[in-house]
Design a protein around this nucleic acid. Structure first.
Length: 667
RNA sequence: GCCAGCGUAGCUUCAAUCGGCAGAGCACCGCAUUCGUAAUGCGGGGGUUAAGGGUUCGACUCCCUUCGCUGGCUCCA
């Protein structure tokens, strides 16, 4: 006897073996038709799999309205895609084909190099498979038999997966659809016809099992939806994300420049971009002072010995610019991190417990030789400036200091209208030997970090093993922008190792008049100005809030007769501390307005004979249009208010399906 | 670094049929126009088609090498 509880609380009893589809049919034929899968005690299964013979289960039927249904559909579409590729090309080896945030992929090993030119015929074959609407049949078998089957099919990658990844499983499952059979945990939609709309997106290389020393496979990306409208909406959102690309906007709006003649990944901040950076720097600087940090400035290169002591040189040798070798044999390294320099300041005199916490802050420029394939606009570069600081404190102070870092981060993000973020805790992988420091130090640091995060009740916190820095555990901030894309910005890291005897041997004299070892906290909550501004460009789509806007107001004259008045107004705006420009070209006012709108200037002051006579300005708001004429002083006050409040006026909300919510499927 | 794709004027707006005269729009410069809330008209300058080599009577176009960029993978102190 099996007792089944449904989500509405009703209870059904069965004395014979039933499948979810039988229960759906019993409830109604429409439901049976719409049911794609079932969730039984929280575990997904296909509609045709038998439920237990007795006991009690809770059952939820999954229709296309269910958020989990889309992943199911996409995974099934991945099978359809693999099947189509196998029909079209010889010798295709299947690897893995999971769903991801915006769709799915399948990793394939095959002779023919796939390119977008192949997409139309693959898509046509997929459409044919979907029209045929064959069912996905689940077949379970013992691992030996499964291994033999994969061997017979020539699927050696699957054989390896059965031997290694699935070594603990007594039996495994396959899904068959016509001539196509694939090792797969499932479940799938009942038949291919459920796939309403799909599209192949791109092809890329991907290493087998994510290991760069193993062979490279071809990864074919696609996406699928229940309806064509949903697919089109998704593609529209992807377009929207592209429209905001900071690399394109950065060039159009003259914010920054990267010139191959100088070097890949080296950023030039153009005048307009530099304004944004300086405003942010000033804002952060003020916050740092308010929170008891002391600004310092330190050299951007240093003797290699320093980084050997810290461990950075040996650990990251390959991703640093090689040392500069001097005639006398001395070697200098372009600094890849600021911490050894701040440690040097700490060590420059004896420290008392009364001096702690010591918080040293520097907008520190560092250089790292990132791999060429990693470089990307401003978000991945070879020279960048971190909003760095190092806190030296006693063990008792760790909690408060760490909390202070997070509070400042929260405050700054909120000011910019970025209130959607999550925290990732990167802990050590105990099996790896890439870390420095004793196991006790690590345990202490991890426990302290986790405790503070739990106390602060941080959103969506997740512990990830193996993601720590080599000297300590870290908390990463992952911020979602207004269209839902996630950006990994800065980190806060706890460090019991650099201060240790084996490294820099830091100490302070305690109340007991004995030396003690301080704890270091590394924090760069916004990562770098390059990455942060890159993210902001995309977040605001180039339309910055007034306090950050490179050009805050543009004076434009209706005819050149009022140019003298215009120049006077512009001068008075500059004197009032506003970033003002003027458009005195012999163009019609409509053209000047259009240009200013396209250049995303927040305010336009339109001046004609009337304004000149009355000493007024006609204020045009980029977002709301003509606000009418008002005395200059009133207009200036309005803008100054908005600047002082750091108002974020433009609120765009959406999701490009590019951020969170990636499925954790290992099909 | 690896896989795949791409590289034409300042422009991530792009054209050039089979290998047959490198051409538009925007921007820029000049002249005219002096205009009231998203494009005034006319004219002009601007190119070693990423660089180098090869095939060919002839190369933007085909082949090779290098550089750069894009999408991924790996990495990310």
């Amino acid at each position: 006897m099996l007792k089944v509880t449904l989500p509405d609380g009703s209870l059904r009893e069965y004395s014979t073996r039933v499948r979810p589809i039988d229960i759906a049919t019993e409830i109604g034929p429409r439901l049976a038709k719409a049911t794609l899968a079932a969730e039984v005690d929280g575990r997904l299964m296909g509609v045709g799999e038998a439920l237990p013979a007795d006991g009690q289960v809770s059952l939820r039927l999954i229709t296309n309205k269910d958020p989990k249904a889309l992943d199911l559909l996409r995974h099934s579409c991945a099978h359809v895609m693999a099947r189509a590729v196998m029909r079209l090309f010889e010798g295709v080896q299947l690897a893995f084909g999971p769903t991801v945030a915006g769709g799915f992929y399948y990793d394939l090993q095959m002779e023919h190099p796939l390119s977008e030119a192949d997409f139309p015929k693959i898509e046509a074959e997929m459409a044919k498979i979907i029209r045929e609407n064959e069912p996905f049949e689940r077949v379970e078998m013992g691992r030996d038999k499964a291994r033999q089957l994969c061997l017979d099919l020539g699927q050696t990658l699957k054989v390896e997966h059965i031997d290694e990844g699935l070594a603990a499983e007594a039996s495994v499952s396959f899904y068959r659809q016509g001539e196509f059979i694939d090792l797969c945990r499932g479940p799938h939609v009942p038949s291919a016809g459920a796939i309403g709309a799909f599209k192949l997106l791109s092809v890329a290389g991907a290493y087998w099992k994510g290991n760069a020393s193993r062979q490279q496979l071809q990864r074919l990306y696609g996406t699928a939806f229940f309806s064509k409208q949903e697919l089109e909406e998704h593609l529209r959102q992807v377009e929207e994300a592209k429209r905001r690309d900071h690399r394109v906007l950065g060039k159009q709006l003259e914010l920054f420049l990267i010139d191959p003649a100088v070097g890949s990944g080296l950023v030039f901040w153009l005048p307009k971009g530099a304004v944004i950076r300086h405003e942010l720097e000033n804002f952060l600087y003020g916050e740092l002072i308010r929170r008891g940090y002391q600004p310092v400035n330190t050299p951007v290169i240093g003797n290699v010995h320093l980084y050997e002591t810290s461990g950075h040189y040996p650990y990251y040798k390959d991703s640093q610019f090689p040392p500069i070798e001097m005639a006398d044999g001395e070697r200098y390294l372009l600094r890849p991190m600021n911490c050894p320099h701040h440690v040097t300041i700490y060590k420059s005199k004896p420290r008392s417990y009364r001096d702690l916490p010591l918080r040293l802050a520097e907008f520190g420029t560092v250089h790292r030789f990132e791999q060429s394939g990693e470089l990307n606009g401003m978000t991945r570069v070879r020279g960048f400036t971190q909003d760095d600081a190092h806190i030296f404190c006693t063990e008792d102070q760790v909690g408060d200091e760490f909390r202070g870092c997070i509070e400042m981060t929260q405050f700054v993000l909120k000011t910019l209208g970025l209130d959607d973020y999550r925290v990732r805790l990167g802990f050590r992988d105990p099996a790896s030997d890439k870390y420095v420091g004793s196991a006790e130090n690590w345990q202490r640091a991890e426990a302290a970090l986790e405790q503070v995060c739990r106390d602060m009740n941080l959103p969506d916190m997740k512990i990830e093993r193996g993601e720590a820095a080599f000297y300590g555990p870290k908390a990463d901030f992952v911020v979602a922008d207004c269209i839902g894309r996630e950006w990994q910005l800065g980190t806060v890291q706890l460090d019991y190792n650099l201060p240790s005897k084996q490294r820099f041997a830091l100490e302070y004299i305690g109340a007991d008049n004995a030396p003690h070892q301080p704890v270091m906290i590394h924090r760069a909550p916004f990562g770098s100005f390059e990455r942060f501004v890159g993210m902001l460009i995309e977040h605001f789509a180039g339309a910055f809030p007034l306090w950050l806007a490179p050009e805050q107001v543009r004076v434009m004259v209706v005819s050149q007769k009022v140019e003298p008045y215009g120049r006077d107004v512009q001068r008075r705006l500059s004197e009032a501390g506003l970033r003002a420009s003027g458009d005195y070209r012999a163009e019609k006012i409509g053209a000047k307005i259009r240009d200013a709108q396209l250049e995303l200037v927040p305010y336009m002051f339109v001046l004609g004979g009337r304004e000149a006579e009355q000493g007024k300005v006609a204020v045009r708001d980029r977002l709301e249009g003509d606000l009418g004429a008002m005395p200059l002083a009133e207009a200036v006050e309005k803008l100054q208010n908005e600047i002082q409040q750091k108002t974020v006026r433009q609120v765009v909300k959406g999701s490009a399906g590019l951020g969170r919510g990636s499925a954790e499927n290992e099909y």
